[in-house]
Design a protein around this nucleic acid. Structure first.
Lengths: 233, 233
DNA sequence: TCTGGAAATAATGTATGATGTTGTTTAGAT
DNA sequence: ATCTAAACAACATCATACATTATTTCCAGA
């Protein structure tokens, strides 16, 4: 098995326990980039940081291992999964396979309120005009999640969401090209129109274009960033 | 979030450690049905069974939680994820979205040896003639895995494999209808032919039929079994 | 500069106790 | 006999301490 294993279908309710909050904190730090790719995750260090004993930390790391965000090497402990261009491309392509499936049901069952909600989010995105990348990523996530969250297939939704979080964590860290910004707005608007018209084929077509471009854009930007680092910026 | 969360992208190398073998053992027991759906997983009991302290057991369970095979309730510990018809249907449909994508590359790049390997497995399946369900499931898994395992997208492969293991664990426990047996053999042969002919469209078409039927068949059989249990057999 | 190996570091596993929650059993009141 | 509430047992969860083993660091010596 290569270094790139799968990611996870797991997500259950949060309980108020200590290990859960440590899990949340570490997970957040990984996705937000506070803990960067490949960073070593020392048990005792994390325990100190979170004012707990080592036990809950060990368990949180194992859970993250199960989700694929943390890798273990025997007798060397845990590291943050390195998120390189291949991994991002792979994650993006998995999302690419699932999104049309998730979208289809939404278009078939969307209510007027659903469309209104999409428009509300879209107008927020347009008002923001890419000025706050984190906020933009969140809104973009909300736009897609609105369409998928009520799908009956919780497994598919969960896999999609997990992949989305990984892609989102990257996209806040790369620049968005001007041309891409315009395309995002155009594609979102076209998507809303297709939903309003109840046109499944058109919606899927627009979505294919949208997420295909988005994925390629992130991968390209990541390549640029890595090349720059490699030249020793 | 519903009781059906996602499953996992994680799979890394096995290390020889004790916790790993406990993880393997519990995972095996869940998928093979030794630990049945919804069964309570008591830490101290599992520790005794595996001759270890509680710590490695807790960590193994957290990893399985990350993969979605085990659910935790606060202060009540862990249970085996209940695998009901909805869950199986959902898992099957996720596979349904990913398999054509995985297959495409194989058809485009398959060598004569690859085809020979498929034929070898297929002839074993035909020789076995559905007499040993576990063995049949393994061979069927091998047939598909042969086509996907070298795909560059390890994330997609991992997600597929994990779903396949869940479906496989179910299909060993439900009967295979006579008509379905013939269809399986026919579809596999058609698939091999399409690969040999390097006909991507035809291969995807056959595969769509194949896994769609297979998924529906398992779900139907599961419904029958549950209805029987409900009537109080 | 390179090498060997001691010392420090940290992962991993064991053991045990404290604490809080849950579920059940039991004793007492109605 | 039925209901309630206190007592209890079982268990999850977390903390702490310690043993073992593997890895990494670093320094003396060639």
């Amino acid at each position: 098995m290569s270094a790139h294993g799968p990611i996870s279908l797991a997500a259950d309710k949060d309980n108020g326990s200590s290990s859960s909050s440590i899990y949340d904190a570490i997970r957040h730090d990984i996705l937000s980039g506070v803990l960067e790719a490949n960073a070593r995750l020392k048990i005792s260090e994390l325990a100190k940081r979170h004012n707990s004993s080592t036990n809950p930390v060990r368990e949180a790391l194992q859970q993250l291992r199960g989700e694929g965000l943390v890798l273990f090497t025997p007798n060397q402990g845990a590291r943050v999964r390195p998120i390189d261009t291949e991994f991002v491309r792979d994650v993006a392509e998995v999302g690419y396979q699932l999104e049309p499936y998730l979208l289809k049901l939404f278009v078939e069952t969307a209510s007027a309120e659903d469309v209104a909600e999409l428009e509300r989010i879209q107008s927020e995105i347009e008002a923001l005009n890419f000025e706050d990348k984190t906020r933009h990523t969140d809104l973009n996530h909300a736009f897609h999640e609105t369409m998928y969250e009520r799908h009956y297939n919780r497994v598919a939704f969960g896999v999609w969401k997990q992949h989305r979080e990984i892609l989102g964590s990257i996209s806040t860290r790369v620049p968005i090209a001007i041309g891409r910004q315009e395309a995002i707005l155009r594609e979102h608007r076209a998507l809303i129109e297709a939903v309003r018209a109840q046109d499944v084929d058109q919606a899927v077509k627009v979505l294919d274009q949208h997420i295909g471009d988005a994925g390629r854009h992130v991968v390209d930007q990541l390549r640029i960033a890595q090349a720059r680092r490699h030249r020793g910026s």
